[in-house]
Simulated assay, not measured.
Amino acid sequence: MDSNKFKLRKAKNKVEKLKRFYTHLAVYVVINTVITAVKVMSGMNNGETFKDAFFDFSTLMSWMVWGMVLLIHAFAVFGLPRIIGDDWEERKIQQFMDEELQQDKKYK
Rank of each mutant, 00 (worst) to 15 (best):
K108E: 09
I35S: 06
K92D: 05
N32D: 06
K105R: 12
M68P: 00
K19P: 00
V40S: 02
A76V: 13
M41R: 04
A53I: 07
V15E: 08
V69Q: 07
N45Y: 11
V77R: 04
I93V: 12
K17F: 13
I83E: 00
M97R: 15
V15R: 11
A11F: 14
D104C: 01
D86Y: 14
D98N: 11
I83G: 00
M61A: 15
T33D: 03
L60G: 03
V69T: 07
F21G: 01
M64K: 10
K108C: 01
T49S: 11
Q95R: 15
M61P: 00
L101I: 10
L80G: 01
T33K: 04
E99Q: 10
V77F: 04
L18T: 02
V30P: 01
N13M: 10
L8Q: 14
K51C: 04
M64P: 00
N32V: 03
R82D: 00
N45M: 13
Q94L: 11
T33N: 02
I31Q: 07
T49P: 01
F54S: 02
V69M: 12
D104K: 12
K12D: 02
Q102C: 00
N46A: 14
Q102G: 02
R91N: 05
D56P: 00
V65L: 12
Y22T: 15
T36L: 11
G79T: 05
G67V: 05
I31C: 02
F50G: 02
W63C: 03
T23D: 02
A26T: 10
R9A: 15
E16C: 11
V15N: 05
Q95W: 12
L71E: 01
D87P: 01
R20P: 00
K12E: 09
S62C: 06
S3L: 15
K5E: 11
F21A: 03
E48L: 15
S3F: 10
H24V: 04
V15Y: 12
V77N: 02
P81H: 08
I72P: 01
H73E: 06
D98A: 15
H73I: 09
K10M: 09
G47R: 05
L71R: 02
S62T: 13
N45Q: 08
K19I: 09
V77H: 04
G79L: 02
R20V: 10
G67Y: 05
Q94T: 13
S58K: 14
D86Q: 12
M44Y: 02
A37M: 07
N4C: 04
D87A: 12
V27H: 06
W88G: 00
V15F: 12
F55R: 09
L70C: 07
F78K: 05
W63T: 05
L18S: 08
E99N: 11
V27I: 15
M41P: 00
Q103I: 10
K51Q: 10
A74I: 01
K51V: 14
A74H: 05
F78C: 04
N32F: 09
I84C: 02
V40Q: 03
K17V: 04
L60P: 01
F96I: 11
K14F: 08
D87K: 14
F54V: 06
